[in-house]
């Protein structure tokens, strides 16, 4: 019921991500079952739900790190098929930030940011360097550009990971629990960076349980459980008056 309204809320033409009847299985286990989600350009979505509900799997299907088994995924007008050209043209436009940063440990901070623009976008070393320094300045970490990931704090590393993704000038950013591996005192610097990005108009899909962040930037909160989307609403409505028992139970848990 909710899913149908979600598809109709944003007209197809303005959708930058359209997920229709998505099914994803791991062997016998169905991790995602008939997911429908449409994201308009510039929209910010917060995905939440209990552990194992399929949040990570869903956003990993959007850039084809996981291959889906059924349904359709259309990103920036390109449908994800098995063809590598389609996959790569989607991935070029979709940045991703992981819980565990996944920076390249053998490359300096600035080199982490330069690699993909040079190899994928064909920028020269000078262009890539200039772009990387610009973006590192934007996430306020340019003074660490020559260091290696191992020399930075978790919060700094995650900001570098955001910068690395931004250097590809993506149209969409995916975040998979970007702050849950961080010490509490470092969460804010990363969330502030994400808030800045949201204010700049980026389309964002964030898996996070940071409800303050959701309140501040999300246009919609999508609640998942056991491989399905159970409920979606604007953050105020969701937090104050979740409709389903499952969402209420979940909210109870994360508040404590």
């Amino acid at each position: 019921m909710f899913q149908e309204t979600a598809v109709n809320v944003t007209s197809r033409s303005s959708a930058i991500v359209a997920v229709e009847n998505l099914v994803k299985r791991f062997g016998q286990f169905t991790a995602l079952n008939d997911i429908n989600l449409t994201v308009a350009a510039g929209e910010k979505i917060v995905l939440c739900g209990p552990s194992g509900s399929g949040k990570s799997t869903l956003i990993r299907c959007i850039n084809h790190i996981e291959k889906h088994d059924g349904g359709r995924i259309v990103v920036t007008g390109v449908e994800l098929t098995d063809r590598m050209t389609d996959i790569n043209s989607v991935r070029r436009e979709v940045g991703m930030v992981f819980q565990s940063f996944n920076l390249f440990p053998h490359l300096s901070i600035v080199e982490n940011c330069m690699l993909a623009p040079m190899k994928v976008r064909g920028l020269s070393r000078e262009e890539a360097h200039e772009r990387a320094m610009g973006v590192l300045r934007q996430v306020r970490i340019h003074d660490q550009a020559g260091k290696y990931p191992g020399q930075l704090s978790g919060g700094q590393q995650q900001r570098v990971a955001i910068a690395r993704a931004l250097c590809m000038q993506p149209k969409i950013m995916l975040f998979d629990e970007p702050t849950s591996a961080l010490d509490p005192e470092m969460v804010k610097e990363v969330l502030d960076t994400m808030i800045g990005l949201a204010r700049g108009g980026m389309t964002m899909i964030c898996v996070t349980h940071e409800m303050g962040f959701a309140r501040e930037v999300a246009d919609r909160v999508v609640f998942m459980d056991r491989g399905t989307i159970v409920e979606e609403a604007d953050p105020e409505t969701f937090f104050r008056a979740a409709r389903t028992e499952r969402a209420k139970g979940f909210l109870q848990q994360i508040i404590h």
């Binding site: 850039n63 991703m96 390249f104 690699l115 590809m168």
Partner: peptide, 14 residues
């Protein structure tokens, strides 16, 4: 680490 491969995929590296 598998995350290294995934980071490369996410960046569209060949």
């Amino acid at each position: 680490n598998r995350g290294q491969f995934e980071a490369c995929q996410a960046l569209a590296l060949s």
